[in-house]
Amino acid sequence: MLKTILAGAALALALTSVADAQTLDKIKQRGSIVVGVKNDYKPWGFLDPSGKIVGMEIDLAQDVANRLNAKLELIPVVAANRMEFLQQGRIDLIIATLGDTAQRRTVIGMIEPNYYAGGTNVLAPKSAGLKDWKQLKDRKVCAIQGAYYNRRVTQLYGPELVSFTGIPEVLNALQQGNCIAFVFDNTLIDSTLSSGDPKWANYEMPLVTEDEQPWAIAVPLPELNGPYGEFMKKVSIDWHKTGKIVELEKKWGIKPSPFVAEMHQKHKAM
């Protein structure tokens, strides 16, 4: 019995070994670049009424594809699977609201400079009367599976997290009263509240935004300092220098982020 289990485990380990090819060559050969993006994170990456994925990050992905003279292929990803997709070579690049943390840097290649930044806050009905993070203790709080701030919020404030795989499920659960708040990125909460949708008229972002984290686009770790990684770093610098992201914020109606404005000023001067 034990032997069978061990053999099974060894097989499972062997099957998941990582394939690494030179991504730039792969893109040239294929004539297309495969980018993992969000499709439920309005307006960074979301579905338009015709079912096409659009948004600020999709525009950025298109820009990368144009620079490489390649066609753009989009693969929708969620927080819990995007890094594995990149490691397995199923996608060439992540542009999916990915927070840049030290832990994640050990498995994928984070491109610097970071292109965006967001912090942690909650979306809650006004009737919940939240004022302080400490009020979340022992209350049901909705979350997204695999978000980096889940652990920090749980350890600091002790809520009972109820996590789902996708944002639509969370918003639905929140509206039905299955949880008193939704702990999430302040950027998305901002854009949800300012969308003018009457559904959110009685909701607010009541707490102080905490733990600002920069976002990064990511390439496979072995290629971070190779030609592919260097190319993406230049692209990211260029975005800040030309004010591409500032422009896209305007286009998609996103509240200007102080981080992006600061990066633009800094790189413009260089």
């Binding site: 485990a9 499972a12 380990l13 998941t16 927080a79 819990a80 890094m83 594995e84 832990q103 994640r104 050990t106 498995v107 909705c142 599976q145 695999g146 978000a147 980096y148 889940n150 652990r151 997290l161 109820v162 996590s163 789902f164 795989t165 499920e169 659960a173």
Partner: peptide, 27 residues
């Protein structure tokens, strides 16, 4: 786990998305 009940798969997926040890936790 799809409706946020913290059973074993849910706990494991929380752990592997933070610690990034998918392979180990799958086993």
């Amino acid at each position: 786990y799809a409706i946020g009940v913290s059973e074993m798969l849910y706990a494991a997926s929380q752990i592997w998305s933070e610690v990034l040890n998918v392979r180990e936790m799958m086993n």
